[in-house]
């Protein structure tokens, strides 16, 4: 499973981008990701989730997941529109992305 993650906006206005090969993660992290993808119902989500809610300095996410069997889906979602079931996956992937940006350097 390959996860592509892009986070833009936020107070800092910086782009955070990562490509994660889930097979290369530690076994417990790999299992967690598979579980969170299933719990989010990720492949059943629409391609775009926006919210009319106001506010400022929120993040925008683009999350793309490709399964070895060929199933793939890309989701564009603004932070305030993230469904509760998807939130843990977004947080976990953002963590992996933040962790990898320092390590890859």
């Amino acid at each position: 499973m390959i996860i592509r993650f892009e986070r833009s906006g936020g107070f800092a206005g910086m782009l955070l981008r990562a490509e994660i090969d889930v097979q290369e993660l530690e076994p417990h992290e790999r299992e967690e990701i598979h579980r969170l993808v299933a719990e989010a119902g990720f492949f059943e989500l629409p391609p775009r989730l926006q919210s009319a809610g106001g506010g400022a300095d929120r993040f925008q996410y683009v999350l793309s997941i490709e399964e070895p069997g060929g199933r793939s889906h890309t989701l564009e979602v603004s932070e305030e529109a993230v469904p509760p079931d998807l939130q843990p996956l977004i947080e976990r992937v953002a963590y992996l992305a933040r962790r990898s940006r320092r390590q890859s350097c």
């Binding site: 936020g10 107070f11 506010g55 400022a56 300095d57 993040f59 932070e79 305030e80 947080e91 963590y95």
Partner: peptide, 12 residues
């Protein structure tokens, strides 16, 4: 707010 959240925002 959350864990590892490197941001601040106004939610309306």
């Amino acid at each position: 707010y959350q864990k590892g959240y490197d941001n601040a925002f106004w939610n309306g």
